[in-house]
Design a protein around this nucleic acid. Structure first.
Length: 132
DNA sequence: TCGCTGACCAGCC
DNA sequence: AGGCTGGCCAGCG
């Protein structure tokens, strides 16, 4: 299988998985990779999102059909990749009712215990009886 | 508890 | 062609 086809398969799988995230919920890059059976490549999930086509591109998967804003990092933080990008993501999340808070370092966070969506919970996490 | 480091693997110079 | 870097994560000190 050519690498380009595999890359396209991966991108489509990532976009489809992200579309499963319910409205008003968020998950992590690593969990998307886990859902796809490739837990060791959360970074490639980000790579796909970076190349997500624009809403007016005419592609089936684009920034208006794929809820890219619902994917954040494992610490619940909206990572800043470019100028203003994190702010746009936070605004998109607030628009669907997700609370975005700031910490002492002025970083933006979402509370996973309220808004997290993690359907494939790891066995080790089941034992974890603590909560915040 | 918090900061740093190593690893992972595709794109991008 | 080869090295660098990234929308990350887990482990260790």
């Amino acid at each position: 299988m050519p690498r380009s086809e595999e890359a396209e398969w991966w991108a489509n799988a990532v976009y489809s998985a992200i579309q499963e995230i319910p409205h008003g919920k968020v998950t992590s890059y690593g969990h998307i990779a886990l859902l796809l059976g490739e837990p060791q490549r959360p970074r490639q999930v980000g790579v796909c999102l970076k190349s997500l086509p624009a809403a007016d591109s005419g592609m089936h998967f684009n920034s208006s059909t794929v809820p890219w804003q619902r994917v954040i990092n494992a610490k619940g933080m909206i990572s800043h990749r470019g100028p203003g990008s994190a702010e746009r993501q936070a605004e998109a999340l607030r628009q669907e009712g997700v609370e975005v808070t700031y910490d002492s370092m002025n970083e933006m966070y979402v509370d996973f215990s309220s808004y997290g969506w993690f359907p494939k919970q790891l066995p080790s996490e089941e034992n974890d009886d603590d909560e915040e």
